[in-house]
Design a protein around this nucleic acid. Structure first.
Lengths: 239, 239
DNA sequence: GCTTGTTCTTGACACAGGTCAAGATTCGTT
DNA sequence: AACGAATCTTGACCTGTGTCAAGAACAAGC
């Protein structure tokens, strides 16, 4: 079963935007043999759920039926770079698990200044939790920094999940607990460290993000100017 | 049943440090009539648990047996002003619920500078969660800003509680979830607001804390100097 | 009531980091 | 290959906030 098939081409035809990572397969669909092109990022449905199931297994053990039940609540979405997942003003009715790619949540001031609250790469959750819980309009925007694969789960489904399979209550308890520790640490860094110390800590902790995200967005996340980071880097390169 | 009785005095005798809030009662204990002085902060055992039970009822409904089970895991402690609940370097084996009074958690730099991570007044939890979860030595100190009443629960007991009564898993999921939202908001304030905006937001949100805690500690919590707060206040009073 | 410690204020001064503007570099698209 | 857009760097300058030091106001304990 296919998640996605952009276009069917004649044998040997070079597909527009064909990349090394792409691959092809021949399949018989309703009596007709067709050749299908895939992106590695366009996974088969079975493979598609693997990342999130692997992730779950780090926290709880599910029976096959429980896993099926969980999957039935998920919606899969692909996001193009710069595409919104949530815009401030809308009510957030879902939470989001990032299976691939990179997203950010941020608030925008009246004068247009953006402040990035969170980055989310593979195996992170992201959302405007306040809006999700309270039903108030979101104050955060969420969009994709790269082309991304995400799963969303709706509030009512998550609540049903908590009731039907209490293990999920446990998993999210642990998740929020860990997030709480991380955020407390982030606050401590923010109130006690210089810009340089904060930046060094960031690249130490999130090297993978630092590689994928433009500097000015990291500056926005850390609450400093892009120029300051540039100067820190210059300073660092001397030693 | 009494939680605490400092001293038995003759009728009419003025007790040392007697305060308006204190009260007295006559009771027959083993055939002898004695007069007992109480502080309002020195509650009877039954009344003692009331705050934390009321608190629980906002999140979950417990049967009497479940409530008893929960209470059996709690240890009650009284703390004098400035008394440590936890010192950096020790492993934190417990989490703490504040029934009365006010505590703070903070880290201390090599040069002695303190950074307050959290205040906790009535109905707040406090602890070094990282040490609690990982078993690593605490990096935070926790002490009492006022004379305080707290309940502690040990890690093994909390885990047993999660297993025996899954409702507690739910409650702590909700608690950590709310804490996460609050901390995310605090980070956003920290990366987007001026010192003045941060201070005004703080007194708006935590008026009760602002009344009870010295200014320089609020400054430490907000990551600014005490002088800056003093100047903001002066500025404000002009309007 | 006096003493001592703690908290809060005020002024002078310094500096980390912000802002603005202009180039340089890299990246994505046609 | 070549254009434009986005990113990153650099310099000049400015400002919010920190630091230090001294005094004032207040509170707590004997």
């Amino acid at each position: 079963m296919l998640l996605h098939c952009e276009k069917i081409l004649h044998q040997g035809e070079k597909r527009l935007g064909m990349q090394d990572e792409d691959f092809a397969a021949t399949q018989n669909i309703e009596g007709t043999t067709v050749r299908l092109w895939f992106r590695k990022t366009e996974l088969t449905v079975k493979a598609m759920y693997q990342p999130i199931l692997d992730y779950l297994s780090k926290y709880i053990e599910l029976t096959d039926t429980e896993a099926e039940r969980f999957k039935s609540f998920l919606k899969h979405r692909k996001l193009r770079k710069r595409q919104y997942l949530l815009q401030a003003g809308d009510v957030s009715t879902f939470e989001t698990f990032v299976a691939g790619g990179c997203l950010r949540s941020y608030s925008v001031e009246e004068d247009g200044t953006e402040h990035i609250v969170q980055f989310a790469i593979e195996n992170w959750w992201i959302g405007d939790l306040y809006s999700f819980l309270s039903g108030a309009p979101a104050t955060l925007n969420i969009d994709a920094i790269e082309d991304s694969d995400v799963f969303t789960i709706d509030k009512s489904d998550l609540e049903r999940l908590y009731r039907e399979i209490p293990k999920f209550e446990r998993m999210f308890r642990i998740l929020f607990q860990n997030a709480f520790v991380a955020y407390q640490q982030r606050i401590l860094s923010k109130i006690s460290q210089t810009a340089e110390e904060q930046y060094i800590e960031f690249i130490g902790k999130y090297a993978s993000i630092e590689q994928r995200v433009p500097q000015h967005q990291i500056a926005s996340y850390l609450g400093m100017s892009a120029e300051t980071i540039s100067r820190i880097r210059k300073q660092q390169s001397k030693h």
